[in-house]
């Protein structure tokens, strides 16, 4: 982490210099890295977000992973056992969600603004088919949020955006080992008197690298060949392991 801290200090100096040049911009922010590489030993990571404001206000950071469909299923008891009996498919659901704020979320901006910018898990985008009854929608949406929280892919507890002095701020965003791959969207908002007075977007990418990435690609692009290879490897490994053990 010391290397990260040193990097952050350097970057802060750079941001300060930029902030002075771009005095017209109310908000400047950046990430310590724009790419997370999932290697064979990947066990989660943290990114540092830092920046400066040109005046007072609350800073909110929203990190969203690539959006896609999500099917939520509901179990009910049939003949004594619990079976998936109902489901609802949502569209445009972010695979990953984190939020950071300098103040509790319900004290930042207005509900309308929070909804618009997907601030807080209750406001995260999830489009249900049109005509879904409101109660059913609410039940499944809550189920979706709970399932995402259980998987650790969404987080309802905002990380702290810490101010160092009146203008400089920083926040640490954690990414778990099961972080989905793809293009991420990191949005930073400066909010004052219930209004958003500055915003900045930073793209970020999570990608697999190394052998793991090649194995995954191979398994999906050349599935039949991968199947043959898997059988061969299993045969060879099984035979070799028992042969090696027998000799000892």
């Amino acid at each position: 982490m010391t290397a990260l801290a040193r990097l952050a200090a350097l970057l802060l100096v750079a941001v300060l210099a930029c902030a002075r040049d771009a005095a017209a911009q109310p908000l400047v922010a950046d990430l310590s890295s724009h790419e997370i590489s999932i290697t064979t030993g990947f066990a989660g990571t943290e990114l540092l977000l830092f920046g400066a404001t040109d005046g007072e206000g609350d800073v909110v950071v929203v990190v969203r992973g690539p959006a896609g469909p999500a099917t939520v299923r509901r179990k009910s008891r049939v003949l004594g056992i619990w079976i998936n009996t109902d489901s609802l498919r949502f569209e445009g659901v972010p695979s990953f969600y984190r939020v950071a704020s300098s103040r509790p979320l319900d004290q930042v901006g207005t509900p309308g603004m929070r909804q618009r910018h997907q601030i807080g898990v209750g406001a995260v985008n999830a489009r249900a088919p049109e005509g879904t009854p409101p109660e059913r929608l609410a039940a499944f949406r809550d189920g979706l949020v709970r399932a995402k929280l259980r998987e650790g892919l969404w987080d309802d507890a905002p990380a702290q955006v810490a101010f160092m002095g009146p203008k400089l701020f920083r926040a640490t965003i954690g990414f778990p080992p099961n972080v989905p791959t793809g293009i991420y969207n990191v949005e930073v908002f400066l909010v004052k008197d219930g209004r958003e007075i500055g915003a900045q977007t930073a793209p970020m990418r999570v990608k697999k690298t190394g052998i793991g990435a090649r194995v995954y690609d191979f398994a999906h692009r050349h599935a039949a060949l991968h199947g043959l290879a898997a059988v061969m490897i299993a045969l060879a490994a099984g035979w070799a392991a028992s042969a090696a053990f027998r000799r000892n």
Partner: peptide, 16 residues
């Protein structure tokens, strides 16, 4: 199978 699950809702069936 018989015990009441912690949450009746789950994200299901294959990857999105």
């Amino acid at each position: 199978l018989v015990a009441t699950p912690q949450d009746a809702f789950s994200l299901g069936g294959g990857r999105a």
